[in-house]
Simulated assay, not measured.
Amino acid sequence: MKRARNFNAGPAALPLEVLQRAQNEWLNIEDSGMSVMELSHRSSEFEKIHNHAIQSLKDLMEIPENYEVLLLQGGASLQFSMIPMNILKDGKRADYVLTGSWSEKALKEAKKVGETAVVASSKDEQYTFIPKVEDIKLNDDAAYLHITSNNTIYGTQWKDFPETGNNIPLVADMSSDILSKKIDISKFGIIYAGAQKNLGPSGITVVIIRKDLITDNDKIPSMMNYSIHSKNNSLYNTPPTLAIYLLSLVLDWAKEQGGVEKIAEINEEKAKVIYDAIDGSDGFYKGHALPDSRSLMNVTFTLPSKEAEVQFLKEVKQAGFVGLNGHRSIGGCRASIYNAVPLSHCQDLADFMKKFQESYKATEAQTL
């Protein structure tokens, strides 16, 4: 079978090696005589898988001892509510930086819980850039500062993170760029990420949280309470066992690639190939994001006309590329080049873009 060149924004491409290993273990995991989906989540076999996934993430991201890793459900969208419910105390305000649709949604949910404030935004400029760190003015009574580290829809990404100190935790939605580059975990109070872009399949959400932010509060519903999940090693209720198993395999694969630093090198090379095709097109392709805010995970661009975009998307699909339509809210085109997308697929896309430009211009010239 010929594998698709998959540029979907999420659920996204998984490493071929991971899928092959899962296939080999499909009917008999850990010599149990069962598939992972049939294991009890209280069994020793699954406990081994579960704890291996958590430890692997700690190793890869160099997570300090004063942080806990939780494996939760509900997607990153549930964290929009869980975070303020757990750490937005009375008399405090939650500060938000708006850089796209997902940060808007996070703010919307926080407003239902308590006081909020927008301390920086690029909305008026169609989210084409990330606000400068020095332009963020935190409130003295801020409970936390929330950012979205990478914006899948608009193709922008934070290059540097605000320094907030321990008293104002920095909270980051890293759903679309976690494990794509090395970061200093100690700068953050909470990092959360849906797995379905860089970590595995949909159905599991990783939360990396500083332990002092996990406090007992019996007014919070149990499933929304970090303390409950922490005390139960993320096994308070039946977890998505298959998703956690695949998460553990993806993390093993990441180690085999050389870890986060090596993955980051490859990601930079992949992005450069496609951005070079855009920048070298004499304006035929136009990137949405300003150059200093460009994402290494989601390359967003437009063509000279709607007709050209329709033709491009038709032909690129016929050529075996998948998932290049821009988000429905803004249109255009988008190549999501997460960790599992091979460099060769990015090179193939860049080659296609150059050939399409030549053929489209030639066709236009003939009709004049």
Rank of each mutant, 00 (worst) to 15 (best):
R3G: 03
R3Q: 12
R5G: 02
N6Y: 13
F7P: 08
G10R: 05
A13M: 15
L16N: 03
L19H: 09
L19M: 15
L19G: 02
R21F: 01
I29P: 03
S35I: 04
V36A: 08
M37V: 13
M37I: 12
L39E: 08
K48I: 10
D59W: 03
M61Y: 06
E62D: 15
E62R: 00
N66S: 03
E68R: 15
L72F: 04
G74L: 10
Q79G: 04
M82R: 14
K89F: 14
G91H: 13
K92A: 12
K92Y: 13
R93E: 14
R93T: 15
S101G: 05
W102L: 09
S103I: 07
A106S: 12
A110L: 11
K112A: 12
E125S: 10
Y127V: 08
T128K: 15
F129V: 10
V133E: 13
I147S: 06
N150Q: 03
T152N: 01
Y154Q: 05
Y154F: 01
T156C: 09
Q157P: 07
D160P: 08
F161N: 11
L170T: 09
V171K: 11
V171G: 00
D173V: 11
S175F: 00
D177A: 07
D177Y: 09
L179H: 07
F188A: 06
G194D: 11
L199K: 00
L199R: 00
G200Q: 01
V206K: 01
V207F: 04
I208M: 10
I209Y: 05
D212Y: 08
N217M: 08
P221M: 13
P239A: 09
A243W: 04
L246P: 11
I263L: 12
A264F: 09
E269K: 11
E269G: 06
A271D: 04
S281Q: 10
D282F: 14
F284C: 06
K286L: 14
P291E: 15
P291K: 13
L296K: 11
V299Q: 09
V299Y: 01
T300C: 12
Q311E: 15
N325L: 02
N325Y: 06
R328P: 05
I337N: 07
Y338L: 03
D348P: 10
M353F: 05
Q357C: 08
Q357T: 09
E358L: 07
